[in-house]
Amino acid sequence: MAPQTTSLRAALAYAGNLFSQLQVPLGGGRSDSDNAPSRLPSSVFGHTNPADNSNNFPAAGITPYDPLSGAPTCPIDSPVSCNNKTSTEDSCCFVNPGGRLLLTQFWDEETHVGGAEEDWTLHGLWPDLCDGSFDQFCGMAPKFNNITEVLEHYDQSELVEYMNRYWVAKYGTNDHLWAHEYNKHGTCVNTLAPSCYGDAYKPGMEVVDYFARAFGLFRTLDTYRALQRAGIEPDPRATHPLAKIQAALEDFSGSRVILKCGGARHDLLHEAWYVYFVQGSLQSGEFVPARDSFHGDKGNCAKNVRYLPKRSK
Rank of each mutant, 00 (worst) to 15 (best):
L227R: 08
D66H: 12
G28S: 14
V95L: 13
M1N: 11
F57C: 03
I232P: 00
M140D: 15
Y162G: 00
D235E: 11
A272Q: 06
Q23H: 04
P41E: 09
T239S: 15
A238F: 08
E286M: 14
M205A: 10
T104W: 00
N145T: 15
H270D: 11
D119W: 13
H180I: 00
A226D: 12
A15N: 11
R229D: 12
A212D: 13
L159K: 03
Q23P: 00
L282G: 06
P79K: 07
A212M: 09
K202A: 15
V80D: 03
S253E: 07
Q279W: 06
G27T: 14
P64G: 11
F294H: 06
K244M: 10
T104P: 00
R100L: 15
S81C: 07
P236C: 10
S255Q: 09
P41L: 04
P241E: 13
A290R: 04
E161W: 07
W273R: 02
N174E: 08
G231I: 12
D297Y: 02
Y171W: 07
H270T: 15
W107R: 10
Y182R: 02
L8H: 03
V160I: 13
G98Q: 05
A15W: 04
E250V: 02
H295K: 10
Q4H: 01
P194S: 13
C74T: 06
F287A: 15
A247M: 11
Y14G: 01
P289L: 05
Y276R: 01
H180E: 04
R311E: 14
L159G: 04
H176K: 12
D235M: 08
S91W: 06
F287K: 00
S43T: 13
S33W: 14
S31T: 12
P289Y: 06
L102M: 08
L122C: 09
C188L: 03
V168E: 02
M140P: 02
Q283F: 00
P127K: 06
